[in-house]
Write a protein that binds this DNA or RNA. Structure first.
Lengths: 234, 234
DNA sequence: GCCAGTCTTTACAACATCTTGATACGTCTT
DNA sequence: AAGACGTATCAAGATGTTGTAAAGACTGGC
């Protein structure tokens, strides 16, 4: 039952990094370390860790942008570890999508306990989202927010990308107009079905070989749309 | 929009209780207070809160037993609030099933942020029940809204699907014309039996091997229709 | 202030679905 | 066997939904 228990450590202080690494491997976790924001985001996509430990004080940019970026495609628990004890820092980090916030110095037992809490939460979630989706001639990379078709980069507008992301991440399931509108436009516009239609047409135009008879971005008459990764087998 | 946002506060210090109550109601939450462990467990079951705030120092027993008890049947997030700052206390509470641990005194903004985190977690614990119906050559997947027959995807119109769903979910029971009309067309059309017949014919045409002598979508003369998953044993 | 890119809004054609009525079929009663 | 009643089938027209293009409104960058 050796489930994946890889933990990504994003921390620039070498001493602290060593400490975490020793502590975690000593408790049966696999670790993976990077020392800056850019590599952190990359590794979050590539290594598919079950938990991320994130230091806020990184050399190349705010740690908060790391959380925000990761949350665009993944629900992996992020535990922030920071020297800053200001309440505002905590609130901002948590609202950006972090799941917990520990202030240095912290006890190693508490860290381990909070990691166990985070692991409990993962357990109850569905399938872990992939950072990269490949099918047919297409590639979507959520971590970079890029889409290719036949090796050519396809430019999508923010709205188009958001819709595509929504549909792809619910692969196979029908999303109602209402759901899509709520997610993309917010609660105030849940009756403007034509918004979705127009942008859907744009998406098909950019991505489908034959937009009039789409293979992947399918219409569900009277209900909404569905992304179908491949013809569904029962 | 008034979704259930009831928070159960288990706290014996009256002053702190008042503070939490005012803070939370002021931010749009509904609250519900008890002052001891016994009532806490009772209310956790009765009031069905989305979050529980728990003080560890209760008069009638350890707060930890409250968490343990609640975890026997519920996954509702429990945020512990305690005066004790010992690492061991934190670890024990978290391992008993608590989701977060705040030490008094704490900032109100931090509390609210951590409550938002807890709410996010509830949101994603969607229902992982696979709503799937299989019999003979048929498969219905309610979660995907797809129907197969002999491995072939069958396309159903919204009305057809709605009727099928209704009949299948009441497997074995007779549904009157009136009931079907009410569910599918609404209260205004409960005397147009004709609607049901026409769509029923369509359904049989798409799903039955021999629509004239249906095996599953059965007619109950003078009453309505019935879906029979398998031939009933005597 | 202009420009380019994007989003909103509109209008209409194309299409799918639903309704409706005519007719055929089946079964039960007398 | 004939009639009465409920049901099945069919297809044309009405209705509703979706696709598409294109024009106007908005936005941020320069």
């Amino acid at each position: 039952m050796t489930m994946a228990r890889k933990i990504l450590i994003i921390e620039d202080d070498v001493q602290m990094q060593r400490f975490l690494q020793v502590l975690l491997t000593g408790h049966g976790y696999e670790t993976c370390c990077v020392t800056n924001a850019r590599d952190g985001i990359l590794m979050a996509a590539e290594a598919e860790p079950v938990i991320i430990l994130l230091d806020l004080g990184l050399p190349d940019g705010d740690g908060l942008t790391v959380v925000t970026k990761i949350r665009e495609w993944s629900e992996v628990p992020v535990v922030v570890i920071s020297a800053r004890d200001q309440e505002n820092d905590k609130v901002r980090a948590l609202d950006c999508g972090a799941d917990d916030y520990l202030t240095k110095p912290f006890g190693s037992k508490e860290l381990l306990a909070r990691i166990r809490v985070a692991l409990r939460h993962v357990k109850f979630q569905g399938q872990p989202q992939k950072a990269r989706f490949e099918w047919g001639d297409w590639i979507i990379d959520f971590s970079q927010r890029l889409v290719w078709r036949r090796g050519e980069l396809v430019h999508l507008t923010p709205t188009e990308y958001r819709i595509l992301q929504l549909l792809v991440s619910h692969n196979g399931k029908v999303l109602t107009y209402r759901q899509i509108l709520k997610e993309v436009w917010g609660n105030a516009h849940t009756d403007q079905n034509h918004y979705v239609r127009v942008h859907m047409a744009q998406l098909r135009h950019k991505l489908e070989d034959n937009p009039a008879q789409p293979r992947y971005l399918l219409t569900e008459m009277g209900i909404g749309y569905r992304f179908q990764f491949e013809t569904p087998e029962p």
